[in-house]
Amino acid sequence: MSGKAAPEIRASMEHGPVRTWSVYLLSCADGTLYCGVTTDVHKRLAMHNGQRSGGARYTRGRRPVRLAACAGGMTRSEALRLEARIKKEPRERKTAVLEAFSTDGAGERASESERDGKTEQSRNAEVPSATVPERKA
Results as ranks from 00 to 15, higher is better:
S2Q: 12
S2H: 13
A5T: 13
A5V: 11
A5M: 14
A5I: 09
A6V: 12
E8A: 04
R10E: 08
A11K: 02
M13E: 15
H15D: 10
G16D: 07
G16A: 06
V18C: 13
R19G: 11
V23H: 04
Y24M: 03
Y24R: 01
L25Y: 05
L26G: 02
S27I: 10
A29C: 12
G31I: 07
G31N: 08
G31A: 07
T32P: 04
T32D: 15
L33H: 03
Y34W: 02
D40R: 14
D40H: 12
D40A: 14
K43A: 13
K43F: 11
K43C: 12
R44V: 14
L45F: 03
L45I: 14
A46I: 08
M47V: 08
M47H: 10
H48I: 02
Q51K: 04
Q51E: 12
S53C: 02
G54I: 02
G54K: 01
G55L: 01
R57Y: 10
Y58D: 01
T59M: 02
R60Y: 05
R62E: 15
V65K: 02
V65R: 00
A68N: 05
A69I: 06
A69Y: 06
A69F: 06
G72C: 12
G73M: 10
M74N: 06
R76V: 13
E78G: 04
E78T: 00
A79C: 06
R81C: 12
R81T: 14
R81W: 13
L82C: 02
L82M: 04
A84I: 09
A84C: 01
A84M: 02
R85Y: 14
I86N: 03
K87Q: 12
K88N: 15
E89H: 01
E89Y: 00
P90R: 05
P90T: 11
P90H: 03
E92C: 00
E92D: 03
A96Q: 02
V97R: 04
V97Q: 00
A100L: 11
A100V: 11
A100F: 15
F101C: 06
F101T: 13
S102W: 10
G105W: 04
A106M: 08
G107F: 06
E108N: 04
R109W: 05
R109A: 04
R109I: 07
A110F: 11
S111N: 00
E112S: 03
S113N: 03
D116N: 06
G117K: 02
G117I: 00
G117W: 11
K118F: 14
T119W: 10
E120V: 14
E120R: 02
Q121Y: 11
S122Y: 09
N124H: 10
N124R: 08
A125I: 15
E126S: 03
V127C: 04
V127A: 01
P128W: 11
S129V: 09
S129N: 12
T131C: 08
P133K: 00
E134A: 13
R135H: 12
R135F: 10
K136W: 15
K136H: 15
A137D: 15
